[in-house]
Design a protein around this nucleic acid. Structure first.
Lengths: 336, 336
DNA sequence: AAATTACCCGCAAACGTTTGCGGTGTGCCT
DNA sequence: AGGCACACCGCAAACGTTTGCGGGTAATTT
């Protein structure tokens, strides 16, 4: 198998007995170059599989045509779909994408930001980690004129474009749905207090209760947003099981985990306890009973975020920062 | 908010009244530079948040310290864990990772390969798409001296390092398990014939039958490897339901989809029909009954693949290409 | 005092590309 | 025949970094 190193513009120039500048221009059909030369150059380039060196281009143009993406964990369906949306739109506009995971770890997030900055990405799309309280790493790249669009998990302290789900309405809808079906004591498995998504869903839960003239019982709100945490709080949840008739979890994994827990303990879902989640993960449709939840349009949010960022990169700057709010959709299934 | 463009080595040199070469050397404590100068440079660099320009580095050194990853779809848990493993190891070794999805589309895969090649990634980690029959796009980058390590979905036509699961043994184990529990007519929902994983699992299925002195009935092998395909073949599967007592699906989503289908049709799992999958996706533990399956060590495979690639990049070339085979582990749950 | 040595540091080229500017040759007009 | 326009192409600098080599100054040796 013959090895042929990547040919450069100079290699082509040498082989054809012309200058590098001529090759460069010929490749883009510059009017200064004769049709004849253009054709010769293009043919030869094609034949040797010439591909421009993006590093050199980026170095010269001071823009890499690459956007960086940081999400907590790609294993979560919502974030994977977000990424798919981003990729599809970005590719279409001639941008490449570098994806990083913070693993919900603040330090890792800082490193990711720095690494992407080192690679001179033109812009950043970010969903912050659960443990991110400080925003200096983001501020620094913004000072370098690298714009950021926050998605879903936004960073409150920073003025920027944002793409979010209407978490408040979504939560209100699904909790109202349970209340309308006669549930009265609904446990809320909530997210951390410093994540906007968690707070908004919590507020939606509260508003639904208020709307139905039910007092909010703070004892019915637990910080519990992962299957692991459900396991940790196992006894606590089981102890409450007889006093509740519904659960609203901040995401679907947690909802499903709590469902399994209660089913194993002999409870009938939804007869004894109704359960609802948030996100419409594929598991929602695979568990039994299937999970009532709130659908988030991850793919569309990804596209929108990428579109917002790219339009900003291309200088189409609307006066102020925008916040795109995607509607949440109630997905009624069998668990509530 | 003040904007401060990214300082270069020359900016530092100018500010400190020294040459760029001195700054470059001072930053890495080169013995030619006095302790005094080193300290001054490093302090100043720190203060202005100097970060080397990776594009320039890559251009000069002809290596980008970046490895490209192509997987079919990140939404699948196996591939996300694979990526996590890759990232963790690569980061540790000072490499960055660029992730692409082929969406099971051959053309998209070709574009991905080319894009990563354009970015002068030092090496490639690839799981091929279902629709990939031709390998020329891979051969071309290998000719450019960019090594490839195939993971899970390997490319048969190419000599290279490989990291795979022992699909044959895994399938044999889980099918044997069903046979030992008295199942006799097991439907196999198989993958496409040109994917090694599918073929190997198919072979494992066949071997298990042979081992138990049961004739292989080709009518019990259906090409059906996604929930969508299960839906398409709905009537066909239901028509067979009374004549089978087990199902072995090539992956967990397909297993779960068939389980839902049969449950909705009134069959009891596993009493009427046992069901097993492959992969140990998180859903396996969330559905009811929980799914018996075969565990694949995605994270470890990712780490191993990255390690293999990086050692090759660093010139530690074992004589021939290696194939690392990870053992499959039977995960017995309640569905079989 | 002259010569050697060590210690610091700068010059310039190179990686691959783009682009303003200047140059050459040909044909046309007067 | 001289001037002009036009078509075509090359030179060189620049992006940020590294690195071999050469040079200058001061300290040490003979």
């Amino acid at each position: 198998m013959m090895k042929t190193l990547q040919p450069s513009i100079r290699d082509i120039a040498k082989a054809l007995g012309v200058s590098a500048s001529t090759v460069s221009r010929a490749l883009k059909n510059h009017p200064d170059i004769s049709k004849d030369t253009c054709q010769k150059v293009q043919e030869y380039a094609e034949r040797v599989h010439y591909r421009p060196n993006v590093l050199a281009l980026g170095l010269k143009s001071q823009r890499s045509q690459t956007i960086g993406v940081i999400v907590p964990e790609i294993v979560h369906h919502f974030f994977s779909t977000l990424i798919s949306g981003i990729e599809d739109l970005a590719y279409g506009k001639g941008y490449r994408v570098m994806i990083c995971q913070s693993n919900e770890d603040y330090l890792r997030e800082v490193i990711n930001v720095q690494a992407l900055n080192d690679h001179r990405v033109d812009g950043l799309l970010v969903s912050i980690s659960k443990s991110t309280l400080d925003a200096n790493h983001f501020i620094r790249v913004i000072q370098n004129e690298v714009p950021i669009v926050f998605m879903d998990r936004i960073c409150h302290d920073i003025q920027s474009d944002r793409v979010v789900t209407n978490d408040f309405e979504g939560a209100k809808m699904v909790v109202s749905h349970m209340l309308q079906r006669g549930r009265r004591r609904i446990l809320h498995l909530a997210g951390p207090k410093h994540l906007t998504v968690g707070v908004e869903r919590n507020n939606g839960y509260r508003q639904a209760l208020v709307d139905h003239h039910i007092a909010v019982d703070e004892d019915l709100i637990l910080h519990c947003d992962t299957p692991q945490r459900v396991e940790t709080r196992r006894s606590q949840i089981l102890a409450m099981a007889n006093e509740i008739d519904g659960i609203f979890a901040v995401n679907d994994f947690t909802a499903v985990a709590s469902m399994r827990l209660l089913q194993d303990a002999g409870y009938n879902i939804p007869a004894d306890i109704a359960i609802a989640g948030f996100g419409d993960d594929p598991i929602a449709d695979m568990v039994s009973p299937s999970l009532t939840t709130v659908k988030q349009r991850g793919y569309d949010m990804g596209r929108e975020a990428a579109a917002l960022l790219i339009s900003r990169l291309q200088g189409i700057q609307p006066e102020r920062f925008q916040t795109k709010v995607f509607p949440a959709m109630l997905k009624v299934r069998n668990s509530a």
